[in-house]
Amino acid sequence: MYFYPLGDDALLINFEQKINREINQEVAKLTSYLRKKKVDGIRYYIPAYCSLTVGYDPVKWNFTDLTERIRRFSDKTYRESLEYNSRFWKIPVCYDPQYALDLPALASEKNVSEEQIVTWHLSCKYQVYMLGFLPGFVYLGDLPETLHCQRKKQPRMKVPAQSVALAGAQTGIYPSSAPGGWQIIGKTPLSIFNPENEEPFLFQMGDQVLFYQVDNTDFLEIATLDLVNLKKLFLSYES
């Protein structure tokens, strides 16, 4: 792990700079471990693909001392001993043409049927590598290689909220309606962001996600559920 100052009140911890599940889980573990330790003077964490940004109170810490403190945690304790329960979501997606705005073009570009794209998208379990870009936007990986694709040349001014989309080696879900260049292949009926809820965000970094297909009727029914019920219905844990 490499530590860098990020200004006078934050530091960046770089893990091995690769996008893969194991490294990302190490980031999740270190974050969860530090959080449990409730280190006085740490203000926030931003766990990402293979790095962790830590914001601190410069009155209580300086870069050298906080680096020392975190390095001690990480070297001795956390690697082998940490129990880490990863949250596991089963997330419904409707691939109906009214939501799957880019599915026909993507299928023809790849010279396969739309059903094949959907089958590939449903074929593997994804990891929430990071949240960013918009409040609640989730970056999920890794896509099967057959689904890797470019961003759209002409980004949309408004991607509908809850759209499920592809870009590069990743799939993502739009929490709110926003401009965006990802290829839209469906929509989840779950509101993954609800500012009125005490916990406004459905996902957190490190979560595991499996998509399953729903038709329009189910979509409309599930769409009426609130976030509290979503957790009961669509979330389980695995260690």
Binding site: L6, A48, T53
Partner: peptide
Amino acid sequence: ISSGVVPGT
């Protein structure tokens, strides 16, 4: 690879 940034970066 994207990582967490702060205002002022």
